[in-house]
Design a protein around this nucleic acid. Sequence first.
DNA 1: AAAACTAAGTCAGACTTGTTGACATTCCAA
DNA 2: TTGGAATGTCAACAAGTCTGACTTAGTTTT
Lengths: 165, 165
Amino acid sequence: MSEGQVGDSLLFLTDEQLRQGIEAMFFAYRGFTAGPDHLLEGTGYGRAHHRALHFIARAPGMNVNRLLAILGVTKQSLNRVLRTLIADEMVESRIGRADKRERHLYLTEKGAALEGQLSDAQRKWMRDAYRKAGPDAVAGFRQVLEALMDSDIRKSYNALREAGA
Amino acid sequence: MSEGQVGDSLLFLTDEQLRQGIEAMFFAYRGFTAGPDHLLEGTGYGRAHHRALHFIARAPGMNVNRLLAILGVTKQSLNRVLRTLIADEMVESRIGRADKRERHLYLTEKGAALEGQLSDAQRKWMRDAYRKAGPDAVAGFRQVLEALMDSDIRKSYNALREAGA
DNA sequence: AAAACTAAGTCAGACTTGTTGACATTCCAA
DNA sequence: TTGGAATGTCAACAAGTCTGACTTAGTTTT
């Protein structure tokens, strides 16, 4: 195999390289979720609650339908999670002003505290990984992740990025 | 340290940047698993079966304990999956020659066919993402993923890489 | 104003995947 | 040879997801 770009391009799309990427993604995702999962152990909450808290923190006042679309689960599934979070006073559900059918979701102080704990743990993990890998690697990481999303998902993602910026 | 580097390093570790990375990971993982999940719809198999098939294909003859460590689930959980795969003649379980307590796992022809389908779908998705992002991005992607694994997980991962190479 | 639609929530039933606990078999070392 | 450790199996249960059918309330269309 000749040296340089051509050799790299050929090599980098072998099934072996792809499989390593697939496995790396699998193992990395475990590491990525381990922190929050561990924090939630024994609290009666799980990953589903974490995700709801995260996106409510991210875009306060979001209505249920929007959150549903982002999470990609059924309303029955989300509702169970939301019900417990509201009962525990982690999340507040306010009736929409313009459209009274809608419920807008906000974190309570208690909810924000829990969400903060979880976010801190996950951000710390992410920050350490970013530090180890360096800025150039991070840019590449983000590019590949975006390419891995399907187009519907990417819509949600970009909507969120704009909302947050 | 030059000013460019310092600026980048500071910017690139803002909470906002980290949060975007976290969300990108979440959405990308959905895209990453969607293909095989969809293929398995209605077959009675799920993601757990896919993972077992993948790693048995990857390292034929592996015993149950080893697979357990890789997958990071309890042996009871894996056993249920394995039981159905064996009953359906996707996987063959051979008693160890040296140690008769061990069961060594192999794909049957049928199992290899199914695993091939799933792998092809996932590799195609991965390949397209890699193509879109380009070789440099892929290198960065892999670096960050490795940094995201925890040390135990990375041990499994590296053991596999060596076994496969 | 009536009819049709939309947003949200609920109940019931099923499935996948994970858990813990109890147990059988096999191996090895005191 | 016997007791402990390792390996794997079976059974029961919990969490989280899904589909389907339904209610309630509010909005839009006709």
